[in-house]
């Protein structure tokens, strides 16, 4: 199945919300709209899989903690969240934002919340990449005495 542009955009913001620092998200989105709870925030695990040799058969690497929830705005939109960690407020906020992104408020939220989160993440990643690049080495093989 080829994902529609809507699904691609939604996957992108859901991923960003799952990775983001909960405190930062709360600072950018302090007020939450009224909503109904379809699935209350629940803490559980997801079994993370790897592949033998990086590309072969899947195997179970270990679990990670995840909090999920499903909420519905008064206007009917349903928001889902699966976020890393055990922070129920984080899952609630992510689900509500997912729902609100399906309303007319999307453009505003994109600019006020998702945009800054994305920019901060890119800055963090490039700082890390630059740090890694500063430890890049060039090894030279030397001719040893006994080879001459």
């Amino acid at each position: 199945m080829i994902p529609t542009p809507e699904i691609t955009a939604r996957r992108e913001w859901m991923a960003l919300l799952a990775r983001t620092n909960p405190a930062r998200l709360a600072a950018l989105l302090p007020d939450l709209p009224t909503h109904a709870t379809l699935r209350p925030p629940e803490i559980g695990t997801v079994m993370v899989q790897g592949r033998a040799g990086g590309t072969g058969a899947p195997f179970n690497l270990g679990e990670m903690s995840v909090t999920r929830c499903v909420l519905q705005l008064d206007t009917g939109e349903v928001g889902h969240a699966h976020v890393q960690g055990r922070d129920k407020a984080h899952a609630t906020r992510a689900a509500l934002l997912d729902a609100m992104m399906q309303t007319g408020a999307a453009a505003h939220l994109q600019a006020a919340v998702l945009g800054p989160l994305r920019a901060e993440e890119i800055a963090r990643r490039s700082a890390r990449a630059a740090r890694a690049a500063s430890t890049k080495v060039e090894f030279f093989t030397l001719v040893r005495g006994e080879d001459q």
Partner: peptide, 19 residues
């Protein structure tokens, strides 16, 4: 803890490298 499911196998070729 309840287990929600299994992930897709992680793609280590797409790793954000620190080493």
């Amino acid at each position: 803890l309840p287990r929600f499911g299994a992930s897709r196998p992680i793609d280590t070729a797409a790793m954000d490298l620190s080493r």
